[in-house]
Each structure stands twice: as structure tokens, then as C-alpha cells.
């Protein structure tokens, strides 16, 4: 059940990704329409984060390619915004909430140039959007998990992009915050931006996403929510890994080289 679209915002063509020699994503091939709130679903270790990271060019693909706005990634980087997993950074780093959100403006500033008043105003505006204005000067280690997550989202907003890739933005977030953030993402999608969210709660996925990608080492489904969230496909996604695929993965891992690399 894979729905391909015309003039996609994001086109992933036969993407295979391995860590060292261990293939974690097999031949993912999909395309996404613009202005949608897209959920990436799948069990732990299904390759959800890997997919986002390889779209962002953080992990080189073993084979296949990604095109965004019909261009290679490096030509359109300024139009893409990325929210890494919250645990990926050390929150004891000496910085205030504002400092972190300002990092969202670095991409447009480029090297050398320092953020000024314009960047600060933008950062403030983004903090307001996520309801964190009151925490402006707070040391980031003093924030709760949900607040840290909102700071990361504010940083992504400050990039003023057209495509947003978010890795587990709802991990460790309470219900009220989750709903508020989803509302914000919805508004962004309505204004024509495309938002990709790695998510693992099927229940809230049903309510919020327009389009759903289901992964379990391979692409199970990609398409409008109504078509994709079916019992059959959910079982394929969450009903354990394909036995044969796991065996092949083991076989490749034990080789002295990566035979998938062309």
C-alpha cells in the first residue's frame, strides 16, 4: 500500500541504509505531497530515525537517493529544518533557552556572522509560538523533558523552513503539551509547509496525521491516513520483524565487507 504522488516535496528513491555493515533500511521508495502533516510509524528499531537522518544527509545511503523540492539536498538545505532527538545532546551545556533557539538562525547567517537583533526577535517569536516565552533566560538543564522538546521545536521554527523533519518530538511530553504542539504543527501544514514526524503512539497518530508512513526495516505503507491505517498493515508493521530479513541482515553483518555497497 504505497501511494506515490506527482510533483512530490520529498522523493525517496530505492534508499538502502546501513550502519557499518548492518543494513537497517531496505529499498525505501516513496514520495510525499506538500502541505501535509506526515507521521512515520513503526516499532523500536524499525529504522524511523535512520530514515530522517538519511533524508538530512547525516547518514550516507548505501544505495538510492533522496530529492527534495525536486533538487539534491545540498541545494535546498536552507528550506529544511531538523529536530533531533532530545537525548542526542547534553542538556548540561551552559546555555539559556534563548541561546539554543537562536541556533535556529545560524543556518541563514552562515559562518562568521553573529546573530543580532533581527535574529533575537525571530527567536522570541518562535518561543512564543511554543508557549515558552516565560523561560527565555532559563538554563536549559533546569527544564522538564517536555519543555526541552518545545525549545527544540522553537529552534526548528526559527529556521523558517518549508519542510520540517522531527525525530520523536513527543517523547517524554505530557498530553496537554502534545496536543498543543500537534495543533501548532497542524497550522504549519495548513499554511503549506510539510511536516514529517517520527512517532510511536498509533492512537494519537490516528487523530493528528494526514499522511502516514509505516516502517519495519522495509517500507510497509505510505499514503493518506484513511487508506493506510488498517488492521492488516498495522499487523505487518508491528507484528515482529520479518524472519528471513533478519537472517539476511545477520549474514551480511558477518561478512568482511558490505556487499550492498555499489
Amino acid at each position: 500500500m504505497i501511494t506515490q504522488v506527482e510533483n512530490p516535496v520529498l522523493e525517496i528513491h530505492d534508499l538502502t541504509v546501513s550502519y557499518d555493515q548492518n543494513p537497517v533500511l531496505w529499498n525505501v521508495d516513496l514520495s510525499l505531497p506538500s502541505g501535509k502533516l506526515v507521521g512515520i510509524l513503526g516499532p523500536n528499531g524499525a529504522g524511523k530515525s535512520t530514515l530522517i537522518k538519511s533524508i538530512m544527509g547525516l547518514i550516507p545511503p548505501t544505495s538510492g537517493y533522496v530529492r527534495i523540492f525536486d533538487k539534491p539536498l545540498n541545494d535546498v538545505r536552507a528550506r529544511i529544518s531538523y529536530v533531533p532527538q532530545r537525548e542526542s545532546v547534553d542538556w548540561n551545556f551552559p546555555a539559556s533557552v534563548l541561546d539554543v533557539v537562536m541556533m535556529g538562525t545560524y543556518g541563514k547567517l552562515g559562518l562568521f556572522r553573529r546573530p543580532g537583533k533581527k535574529e533575537k526577535d525571530l527567536a522570541m517569536q518562535c518561543l512564543e509560538q511554543v508557549g515558552m516565552t516565560g523561560f527565555l533566560k532559563r538554563q536549559i538543564s533546569e527544564l522538564s523533558g517536555g519543555q526541552q522538546q518545545r525549545v527544540f521545536i522553537a529552534r526548528a521554527l526559527a529556521q523558517q523552513a518549508d519542510l520540517y523533519l522531527m525525530d520523536e518530538p513527543f517523547a517524554g511530553v505530557d498530553m496537554a503539551t502534545e496536543t498543543a504542539i500537534f495543533q501548532l504543527l497542524k497550522e504549519m501544514a495548513d499554511s503549506g509547509k510539510t511536516v514529517l514526524v517520527v512517532h510511536h503512539d498509533i492512537h494519537s497518530a490516528m487523530n493528528f496525521f494526514d499522511w502516514v508512513i509505516m516502517l519495519n526495516l522495509h517500507l510497509v505503507a505510505s499514503g493518506p491516513k484513511e487508506l493506510v491505517i488498517t488492521e492488516d498493515l498495522l499487523r505487518k508493521t508491528y507484528g515482529g520483524k520479518l524472519n528471513l530479513l533478519t537472517k539476511v541482515t545477520d549474514l551480511i553483518r558477518n561478512k568482511d565487507f558490505n556487499p550492498l555497497k555499489s
Binding site: 547525516l58 531538523y82 542526542s88 551545556f93 541561546d99 539554543v100 543556518g107 562568521f112
Partner: peptide, 22 residues
């Protein structure tokens, strides 16, 4: 001093730095 912003990013969140094309 010139690269303060870049080094801050390198320590705090290098992956994000890479993602924004630094």
C-alpha cells in the same frame, strides 16, 4: 572569538550543525 558560534554548535549539537549545512 571569530568562530564562537560555530564552536558552540560543535560542542552542543554537532549533528544539527551538519543538518543546517555547516
Amino acid at each position: 572569538t571569530l568562530f564562537l558560534k560555530e564552536f558552540r554548535l560543535m560542542v552542543f549539537d554537532p549533528e544539527y550543525g551538519k543538518a543546517i549545512g555547516f
